[in-house]
Protein backbone atom coordinates (compact mmCIF):
# COMPACT_ATOMS: atom_id res chain seq x y z
CA UNK A 1 0.00 0.00 0.00
CA UNK A 2 1.36 3.41 -0.97
CA UNK A 3 0.91 6.52 1.15
CA UNK A 4 1.71 10.22 0.91
CA UNK A 5 3.62 11.95 3.69
CA UNK A 6 3.03 15.57 4.63
CA UNK A 7 5.17 17.48 7.13
CA UNK A 8 4.62 20.95 8.53
CA UNK A 9 7.63 22.22 10.49
CA UNK A 10 6.46 25.31 12.33
CA UNK A 11 8.07 27.52 14.94
CA UNK A 12 6.11 25.93 17.77
CA UNK A 13 4.92 22.55 16.53
CA UNK A 14 6.01 20.00 13.97
CA UNK A 15 3.26 17.96 12.38
CA UNK A 16 3.33 14.79 10.34
CA UNK A 17 0.49 13.10 8.52
CA UNK A 18 0.18 10.11 6.30
CA UNK A 19 -2.70 10.02 3.85
CA UNK A 20 -3.82 7.22 1.59
CA UNK A 21 -4.70 7.33 -2.09
CA UNK A 22 -8.23 8.50 -1.18
CA UNK A 23 -6.67 11.42 0.72
CA UNK A 24 -7.87 10.10 4.08
CA UNK A 25 -5.64 10.59 7.10
CA UNK A 26 -4.18 7.26 8.16
CA UNK A 27 -1.97 8.47 10.99
CA UNK A 28 -0.73 11.73 12.38
CA UNK A 29 1.90 13.01 14.78
CA UNK A 30 1.83 16.39 16.49
CA UNK A 31 4.85 17.36 18.55
CA UNK A 32 6.53 20.49 19.85
CA UNK A 33 9.48 21.71 17.81
CA UNK A 34 11.19 22.97 20.98
CA UNK A 35 13.63 25.04 18.98
CA UNK A 36 15.25 21.97 17.50
CA UNK A 37 13.63 21.31 14.13
CA UNK A 38 16.21 18.72 13.03
CA UNK A 39 15.42 16.58 16.04
CA UNK A 40 11.70 17.20 15.61
CA UNK A 41 11.81 16.03 12.00
CA UNK A 42 13.58 12.79 12.86
CA UNK A 43 11.53 12.09 15.96
CA UNK A 44 8.28 12.85 14.16
CA UNK A 45 9.22 10.65 11.25
CA UNK A 46 10.21 7.84 13.57
CA UNK A 47 6.99 7.85 15.56
CA UNK A 48 4.97 8.04 12.36
CA UNK A 49 6.90 5.03 11.07
CA UNK A 50 5.91 3.09 14.19
CA UNK A 51 2.23 3.86 13.59
CA UNK A 52 2.39 2.84 9.96
CA UNK A 53 1.30 -0.58 8.72
CA UNK A 54 4.18 -2.97 8.01
CA UNK A 55 3.80 -3.09 4.26
CA UNK A 56 3.34 0.65 3.85
CA UNK A 57 5.50 2.57 1.43
CA UNK A 58 5.93 6.30 1.03
CA UNK A 59 5.14 7.35 -2.51
CA UNK A 60 5.58 11.09 -2.11
CA UNK A 61 6.61 13.72 0.45
CA UNK A 62 5.35 17.28 0.83
CA UNK A 63 6.92 19.87 3.14
CA UNK A 64 5.52 23.14 4.45
CA UNK A 65 5.95 25.52 7.38
CA UNK A 66 8.82 27.86 8.12
CA UNK A 67 11.14 24.83 8.36
CA UNK A 68 10.06 23.42 5.02
CA UNK A 69 13.48 23.73 3.41
CA UNK A 70 15.10 21.93 6.31
CA UNK A 71 12.51 19.17 6.02
CA UNK A 72 13.26 18.98 2.32
CA UNK A 73 16.97 18.49 3.00
CA UNK A 74 16.44 15.72 5.55
CA UNK A 75 13.45 13.90 4.05
CA UNK A 76 13.70 14.67 0.35
CA UNK A 77 10.45 16.38 -0.61
CA UNK A 78 8.59 16.31 -3.92
CA UNK A 79 6.74 19.49 -3.05
CA UNK A 80 8.02 22.36 -0.89
CA UNK A 81 5.13 24.77 -0.42
CA UNK A 82 4.33 27.84 1.64
CA UNK A 83 1.76 27.57 4.43
CA UNK A 84 -0.93 29.65 2.71
CA UNK A 85 -1.22 27.29 -0.22
CA UNK A 86 -1.14 24.09 1.85
CA UNK A 87 -3.73 25.35 4.35
CA UNK A 88 -6.01 26.41 1.53
CA UNK A 89 -5.70 23.03 -0.19
CA UNK A 90 -6.48 21.19 3.04
CA UNK A 91 -9.46 23.43 3.83
CA UNK A 92 -10.88 22.85 0.34
CA UNK A 93 -10.44 19.15 0.81
CA UNK A 94 -12.33 19.32 4.11
CA UNK A 95 -15.12 21.48 2.70
CA UNK A 96 -15.02 22.12 -1.06
CA UNK A 97 -17.47 25.01 -0.63
CA UNK A 98 -15.27 26.77 1.94
CA UNK A 99 -14.89 30.51 1.35
CA UNK A 100 -12.90 31.64 4.39
CA UNK A 101 -10.05 29.97 6.24
CA UNK A 102 -8.99 31.29 9.63
CA UNK A 103 -5.67 29.84 10.72
CA UNK A 104 -4.01 30.70 14.00
CA UNK A 105 -0.74 29.03 14.78
CA UNK A 106 2.06 29.47 17.25
CA UNK A 107 3.66 32.60 15.89
CA UNK A 108 1.60 33.63 12.96
CA UNK A 109 -1.98 33.92 12.02
CA UNK A 110 -3.50 34.14 8.60
CA UNK A 111 -6.73 34.57 6.77
CA UNK A 112 -7.32 32.99 3.39
CA UNK A 113 -10.23 34.02 1.21
CA UNK A 114 -11.28 31.32 -1.23
CA UNK A 115 -13.63 31.69 -4.15
CA UNK A 116 -14.58 28.67 -6.26
CA UNK A 117 -11.90 26.61 -4.60
CA UNK A 118 -8.93 28.84 -5.34
CA UNK A 119 -7.09 31.34 -3.17
CA UNK A 120 -8.58 34.73 -3.98
CA UNK A 121 -6.90 36.80 -1.30
CA UNK A 122 -4.91 36.27 1.87
CA UNK A 123 -3.18 38.10 4.67
CA UNK A 124 -0.75 37.19 7.42
CA UNK A 125 0.00 38.99 10.65
CA UNK A 126 2.82 41.43 10.15
CA UNK A 127 5.16 42.39 12.93
CA UNK A 128 3.48 41.45 16.19
CA UNK A 129 2.53 38.11 17.67
CA UNK A 130 -0.10 39.48 20.10
CA UNK A 131 -2.92 37.63 18.39
CA UNK A 132 -1.32 34.21 18.16
CA UNK A 133 -0.98 30.97 20.07
CA UNK A 134 2.27 31.96 21.79
CA UNK A 135 0.49 34.77 23.57
CA UNK A 136 -2.32 32.51 24.76
CA UNK A 137 0.30 30.01 25.90
CA UNK A 138 2.09 32.64 27.90
CA UNK A 139 -1.08 33.96 29.52
CA UNK A 140 -2.29 30.48 30.42
CA UNK A 141 1.08 29.82 32.07
CA UNK A 142 0.85 33.08 34.00
CA UNK A 143 -2.63 32.20 35.27
CA UNK A 144 -1.57 28.66 36.10
CA UNK A 145 -4.06 27.07 33.71
CA UNK A 146 -3.15 24.28 31.33
CA UNK A 147 -3.47 25.67 27.80
CA UNK A 148 -5.73 22.73 26.90
CA UNK A 149 -8.28 23.81 29.54
CA UNK A 150 -8.30 27.52 28.77
CA UNK A 151 -11.08 27.20 26.22
CA UNK A 152 -13.31 24.99 28.38
CA UNK A 153 -13.02 27.32 31.35
CA UNK A 154 -13.84 30.40 29.32
CA UNK A 155 -17.06 28.77 28.06
CA UNK A 156 -18.50 29.00 31.58
CA UNK A 157 -18.49 32.78 31.28
CA UNK A 158 -21.79 34.61 31.03
CA UNK A 159 -20.46 38.17 31.06
CA UNK A 160 -16.99 38.49 29.51
CA UNK A 161 -14.91 41.47 30.63
CA UNK A 162 -13.40 43.86 28.11
CA UNK A 163 -9.68 43.44 27.57
CA UNK A 164 -7.45 45.48 25.26
CA UNK A 165 -6.46 43.29 22.35
CA UNK A 166 -4.14 45.53 20.38
CA UNK A 167 -0.97 44.60 22.15
CA UNK A 168 0.12 41.69 24.27
CA UNK A 169 1.54 43.95 26.94
CA UNK A 170 -1.64 46.05 27.15
CA UNK A 171 -3.76 42.89 27.29
CA UNK A 172 -1.71 41.47 30.10
CA UNK A 173 -1.93 44.60 32.22
CA UNK A 174 -5.67 44.77 31.57
CA UNK A 175 -6.06 41.19 32.71
CA UNK A 176 -4.08 41.77 35.87
CA UNK A 177 -6.22 44.80 36.60
CA UNK A 178 -9.46 42.85 36.09
CA UNK A 179 -8.17 40.05 38.30
CA UNK A 180 -7.44 42.53 41.04
CA UNK A 181 -10.94 43.97 40.68
CA UNK A 182 -12.19 40.48 41.52
CA UNK A 183 -13.80 39.37 38.29
CA UNK A 184 -14.32 35.61 37.95
CA UNK A 185 -11.61 33.78 36.05
CA UNK A 186 -13.96 32.49 33.37
CA UNK A 187 -15.09 36.03 32.48
CA UNK A 188 -11.49 37.17 32.21
CA UNK A 189 -10.58 34.22 30.02
CA UNK A 190 -13.54 34.80 27.72
CA UNK A 191 -12.56 38.47 27.62
CA UNK A 192 -9.11 37.39 26.51
CA UNK A 193 -10.58 35.20 23.77
CA UNK A 194 -12.77 38.04 22.53
CA UNK A 195 -9.82 40.44 22.58
CA UNK A 196 -7.78 38.05 20.48
CA UNK A 197 -10.58 37.65 17.97
CA UNK A 198 -11.03 41.43 17.76
CA UNK A 199 -7.32 41.86 17.20
CA UNK A 200 -7.32 39.19 14.51
CA UNK A 201 -10.31 40.62 12.64
CA UNK A 202 -8.97 44.18 12.81
CA UNK A 203 -5.45 43.35 11.74
CA UNK A 204 -5.23 40.17 9.74
CA UNK A 205 -8.82 40.29 8.56
CA UNK A 206 -8.84 44.01 7.77
CA UNK A 207 -10.78 44.77 4.62
CA UNK A 208 -11.48 41.12 3.84
CA UNK A 209 -14.97 39.92 3.08
CA UNK A 210 -15.58 36.98 5.39
CA UNK A 211 -18.25 34.69 3.97
CA UNK A 212 -19.55 31.31 5.13
CA UNK A 213 -18.56 28.52 5.19
CA UNK A 214 -15.77 29.51 7.57
CA UNK A 215 -13.18 26.88 8.48
CA UNK A 216 -11.02 27.49 11.55
CA UNK A 217 -7.73 25.59 11.75
CA UNK A 218 -4.32 25.64 13.39
CA UNK A 219 -3.38 24.72 16.93
CA UNK A 220 -5.51 27.49 18.47
CA UNK A 221 -8.67 26.08 16.84
CA UNK A 222 -8.70 23.53 19.67
CA UNK A 223 -9.67 26.40 21.97
CA UNK A 224 -13.45 26.39 22.12
CA UNK A 225 -13.55 29.83 23.69
CA UNK A 226 -11.87 31.40 20.67
CA UNK A 227 -14.19 29.55 18.35
CA UNK A 228 -17.22 30.80 20.24
CA UNK A 229 -15.85 34.35 20.18
CA UNK A 230 -15.40 34.12 16.40
CA UNK A 231 -18.96 32.89 15.95
CA UNK A 232 -20.29 35.68 18.12
CA UNK A 233 -18.28 38.36 16.37
CA UNK A 234 -18.88 37.17 12.79
CA UNK A 235 -22.47 36.03 13.27
CA UNK A 236 -21.56 32.94 11.25
CA UNK A 237 -21.04 29.30 12.15
CA UNK A 238 -17.36 28.39 12.37
CA UNK A 239 -16.36 24.83 11.55
CA UNK A 240 -13.31 23.21 13.11
CA UNK A 241 -12.07 20.13 11.21
CA UNK A 242 -11.22 17.01 13.19
CA UNK A 243 -7.57 17.30 12.11
CA UNK A 244 -7.45 21.07 12.55
CA UNK A 245 -3.99 20.92 14.11
CA UNK A 246 -2.31 19.24 11.15
CA UNK A 247 -4.09 20.87 8.19
CA UNK A 248 -0.88 22.32 6.75
CA UNK A 249 0.67 18.87 6.68
CA UNK A 250 -2.45 17.41 5.08
CA UNK A 251 -2.32 20.05 2.35
CA UNK A 252 1.35 19.31 1.73
CA UNK A 253 0.62 15.59 1.48
CA UNK A 254 -2.22 16.15 -1.00
CA UNK A 255 0.01 18.36 -3.16
CA UNK A 256 2.82 15.81 -3.00
CA UNK A 257 0.45 13.10 -4.16
CA UNK A 258 -0.49 15.23 -7.15
CA UNK A 259 3.11 16.05 -7.98
CA UNK A 260 4.43 12.53 -8.36
CA UNK A 261 3.25 10.51 -11.26
CA UNK A 262 4.47 7.61 -13.31
CA UNK A 263 7.00 9.82 -15.03
CA UNK A 264 8.11 11.66 -11.90
CA UNK A 265 9.46 9.34 -9.20
CA UNK A 266 9.58 10.51 -5.59
CA UNK A 267 12.62 12.27 -4.11
CA UNK A 268 11.98 10.65 -0.73
CA UNK A 269 15.38 9.75 0.73
CA UNK A 270 14.27 6.59 2.53
CA UNK A 271 14.27 5.42 6.14
CA UNK A 272 17.97 4.59 6.23
CA UNK A 273 19.07 8.08 5.30
CA UNK A 274 16.74 9.77 7.77
CA UNK A 275 16.96 7.51 10.80
CA UNK A 276 20.51 6.19 10.75
CA UNK A 277 22.87 9.07 10.11
CA UNK A 278 23.88 11.70 12.61
CA UNK A 279 22.50 15.10 11.62
CA UNK A 280 24.15 18.21 12.92
CA UNK A 281 23.67 21.88 12.30
CA UNK A 282 26.51 24.34 12.59
CA UNK A 283 26.72 28.02 12.01
CA UNK A 284 29.65 29.97 10.70
CA UNK A 285 30.17 33.71 10.40
CA UNK A 286 31.09 34.49 6.84
CA UNK A 287 33.88 37.05 6.78
CA UNK A 288 33.49 37.80 3.08
CA UNK A 289 32.02 41.28 3.56
CA UNK A 290 30.81 43.52 6.41
CA UNK A 291 27.39 41.84 6.28
CA UNK A 292 28.95 39.10 8.41
CA UNK A 293 26.10 36.76 7.51
CA UNK A 294 25.47 33.91 9.87
CA UNK A 295 25.55 30.97 7.53
CA UNK A 296 23.85 27.83 8.76
CA UNK A 297 25.03 24.49 7.56
CA UNK A 298 23.50 21.06 7.96
CA UNK A 299 25.59 17.94 7.89
CA UNK A 300 24.86 14.25 7.93
CA UNK A 301 27.81 12.57 9.54
CA UNK A 302 30.65 14.35 7.73
CA UNK A 303 28.84 15.25 4.58
CA UNK A 304 27.50 18.78 4.15
CA UNK A 305 23.96 18.67 2.85
CA UNK A 306 23.15 22.34 2.58
CA UNK A 307 24.08 25.90 3.46
CA UNK A 308 21.66 28.76 3.89
CA UNK A 309 21.39 32.23 5.37
CA UNK A 310 23.94 34.11 3.27
CA UNK A 311 22.68 37.21 1.53
CA UNK A 312 24.88 36.87 -1.52
CA UNK A 313 24.15 33.13 -1.88
CA UNK A 314 27.86 32.41 -2.18
CA UNK A 315 27.59 29.49 0.24
CA UNK A 316 24.14 28.45 -0.78
CA UNK A 317 25.12 27.94 -4.40
CA UNK A 318 28.50 26.44 -3.56
CA UNK A 319 27.02 22.96 -3.24
CA UNK A 320 26.01 22.04 -6.73
CA UNK A 321 24.80 18.42 -6.65
CA UNK A 322 28.06 17.14 -8.15
CA UNK A 323 30.41 18.75 -5.67
CA UNK A 324 29.38 18.08 -2.10
CA UNK A 325 32.23 18.83 0.20
CA UNK A 326 33.46 16.59 2.95
CA UNK A 327 34.43 18.30 6.16
CA UNK A 328 37.36 16.80 7.99
Amino acid sequence: MQYFLGVDIGSVSSNFVLIDQQQQVVSKVYLRTNGNPVNAIREGFQSLRRQMPEDAGIAAVGATGSGRHLADIILGADVVKNEITTHAVAACHYDPACQTVIEIGGQDSKIIILRDGIVYDFAMNTVCAAGTGSFLDQQAARLGIAIENLGEQSLASSRPVRIAGRCGVFAESDMIHKQQMGYPMSDILMGLCEAMVRNYLNNVGKGKKILAPVVFQGGVAANRGIRKAFEKSLGLPVAVPENHDVMGAIGAAILAGEAVSASQPTRFRGDGFILEGDFKTRSLDCQGCPNLCEVACIMRDRKILSYWGDRCRKWETSLKPAAQAVVV
Binding site: N82, I84, V119
Partner: peptide, 23 residues
Protein backbone atom coordinates in the same frame (compact mmCIF):
# COMPACT_ATOMS: atom_id res chain seq x y z
CA UNK B 1 12.19 47.32 9.15
CA UNK B 2 15.40 46.22 10.77
CA UNK B 3 14.52 42.52 11.07
CA UNK B 4 16.80 40.46 8.93
CA UNK B 5 15.07 37.09 8.79
CA UNK B 6 13.69 36.69 5.32
CA UNK B 7 11.67 33.49 5.83
CA UNK B 8 8.51 35.50 6.46
CA UNK B 9 8.95 37.62 3.34
CA UNK B 10 9.75 34.56 1.25
CA UNK B 11 6.61 32.76 2.46
CA UNK B 12 4.44 35.73 1.55
CA UNK B 13 6.01 36.15 -1.88
CA UNK B 14 5.62 32.45 -2.63
CA UNK B 15 2.02 32.46 -1.46
CA UNK B 16 1.27 35.57 -3.49
CA UNK B 17 2.76 34.19 -6.71
CA UNK B 18 0.97 30.86 -6.13
CA UNK B 19 -2.29 32.76 -5.80
CA UNK B 20 -1.67 34.82 -8.94
CA UNK B 21 -0.85 31.70 -10.95
CA UNK B 22 -4.05 29.99 -9.96
CA UNK B 23 -6.17 33.03 -10.60
Amino acid sequence: DEHSGNAGIQTRLEAFTDMLRRR
